[in-house]
Write a protein that binds this DNA or RNA. Structure first.
Lengths: 202, 202, 202, 202
DNA sequence: GATGAATGAGAATTCATTCAT
DNA sequence: AATGAATGAATTCTCATTCAT
């Protein structure tokens, strides 16, 4: 009943579940499949997780914290806003490229869930946007990022674009190097698509 | 057996289904719930749809075509690339704001589905990206959009950002006017977030 | 509500039903299929038949009486017991060969039914066995059929063998002439398979 | 998933199913009824059988092989063709008398099935007819069975007559001893119903 | 702790039958 | 009389969860 989250079996099951969820989707996956993938009995799952939903909740809680720590570290390693932004996005793409099952579950199931696992997801998205806000504000102080920005929109722009880049990578069978997208993505954020001709004169 | 797609009841059921899917998600929704919402017997559903999956397929086939026609019309109404882009995004936000259940289903289920309904979804995403490519190329010829762009990335930027704007609107309970986001979104696409100071000199 | 059994439509539906039952079996057949085959609306069936079961009941009542009249006539046409037996069996094989759908339904569904249609079936089997008894008794008086016979067994021998001959014909795709089996079948009934060597001496 | 066919519960369910099928017919029987008769939960059925059809398939596969082994043994125990035939028929009647539910299912459902379980059924009927052919040929060599026989017809005669004897026994409520029919049945096969007067002179 | 057989609630789907037109 | 859309009871089957071993 204690549901130990540090035993080896706990992680075995969690990784197996992520793989199965990635391949089939959460709802299409059965506890029996997860158990088989993990090499344990069906009932064993319930020694480590309250129920099927809880596996997804734990996934977000565990993977997410781990990943977000990486994001935070990546940002902290840089000094200027622009490099911070680059580091954030590179870390994001790196993390998802390294663990594609996690990426697939994250991209697909995050939108699906209603109450289930909502808290961790919201926290995580919030954290992500907080980092962006922080970086943008620093850039504005440095003078590298312009001031007349609607912050909410900037967060959505960056969050949405990265998300879509990952999505496209998944849907094309992960055939290319995701991390190498970093620079052109950041460059687009910074410069937009407009030509010099139409830029407002500051 | 003929599955008439123009009868009133067909549309009643489809709208009811979209509402139920929006509220509960496709997999959590039962045919019985849809029938109840539509005010028909369970069996009646099967006079108009092959099975539960088919409801979603029909939704994409029907709503999507309808919406995409609007997008195309909106784009065609404008002359310059920038106004075309503005019209596209405004039409997108308008359509989704006007039919929030459709928006919710679309945002959530599109990523979920594997084979089911994949063809229509892919076609639709493709069409969307084709329009963007077309507009961007026109802008490059006009000189309003810069030439050194990786088109694939531009599509993802725009697609992803609009998607995320809609997502945020849904998750905050659709409390504000979605369409009014158009201008600041397009402005961001055009100008990016960088200040004049860091722009490369052309 | 009068369920007229002499209208043209009544027979159209009955024939359609027999065809469908023959092809799919009674339980696998749907009222909708029968209606389609008959070229009428589903509901029309219920103007002529109480329910699905009733179609089968009517089938036995109608076809059976018709067929049995033929059997009786065939028997009456002959004088000696042996020719009567030959005529009976030839009439049987002829009737079933001529209407293979009827044959298929009769062979397959007769055993299946429990209460449903039991009465007509029993009557018909009874009638068949009565004819056999009658013929055998005549033969015994004529001296062409031996006297020390257990009549119940003789009936089963003849009934069962004819039945099996028809069955085999159906299962081999009705590829040969069924009626031509008559003579060798009757010959077997009369002479058995034993050689002269083992016959008891009378 | 392993569908263990040697566990006690497998047999409990199979016997329960046969009983229910015998009483109601395959199509009229529900999985719930079988489960109740077997004293297990509905879902338990599916741990041992793929689906409802599979129960019937297993029945044929299991019972049939078992019974046919008995037939073969009975035949092999005798030396002369006539005693072989007697043994075969006695073994047949004994087996069906001993397990009347099996008998009822076998007699009724065998004709019904189309593709379902067709293979085992055909194999079994074939095997039966092969034994008959074998015995008859031996008798012809011994001189106890006459040579001018159409073998196909002999098989149908014997198969059909035994079948009908069993049928009659079932339909009269199994009120008498089935096995005791053996001798008079065989006697009929051997001698036919004709009197000495009409026998062809060899 | 681990197992996996057993459970039974729940869901999709079919189809005989009805009835308003 | 005829229609065929609508009904909803009935049935099969799945699978998360439990619990005796």
């Amino acid at each position: 009943m204690l549901m130990k989250r540090n035993s080896e079996k706990y992680h075995t099951i969690l990784e197996a579940a992520i793989k199965v969820f990635a391949e089939q989707g959460f709802h299409q996956s059965t506890v029996a499949q997860i158990a088989k993938e993990a090499g344990v009995a069906d009932g064993t799952i319930y020694l480590y997780f309250k129920n099927k939903d809880d596996i997804l909740v734990q996934f977000y809680d565990y993977k997410t914290k781990q990943v977000f720590k990486k994001f935070r570290d990546a940002v902290n390693k840089a000094d200027t806003a622009i490099t911070k932004l680059q580091n954030l996005i590179r870390a994001h793409l790196e993390a998802f490229q390294k663990e594609p099952y996690m990426a697939m579950v994250y991209q697909v199931e995050t939108r699906q869930q209603r109450r289930l696992a909502e808290q961790p997801i919201k926290e995580m998205s919030q954290m992500y946007r907080d980092i962006i806000a922080e970086v943008v504000e620093q850039g504005q102080e440095e003078g590298t990022i312009r001031r007349n920005l609607y912050m909410g929109m900037v967060k959505r722009l960056i969050n949405g674009a990265v998300d879509e880049v990952i999505n496209a990578w998944i849907h094309t069978g992960r055939a290319y190097d995701l991390v190498s997208m970093t620079d052109s993505l950041v460059e687009l954020f910074i410069n937009g698509i407009g030509s010099a001709q139409i830029r407002p004169q500051h």
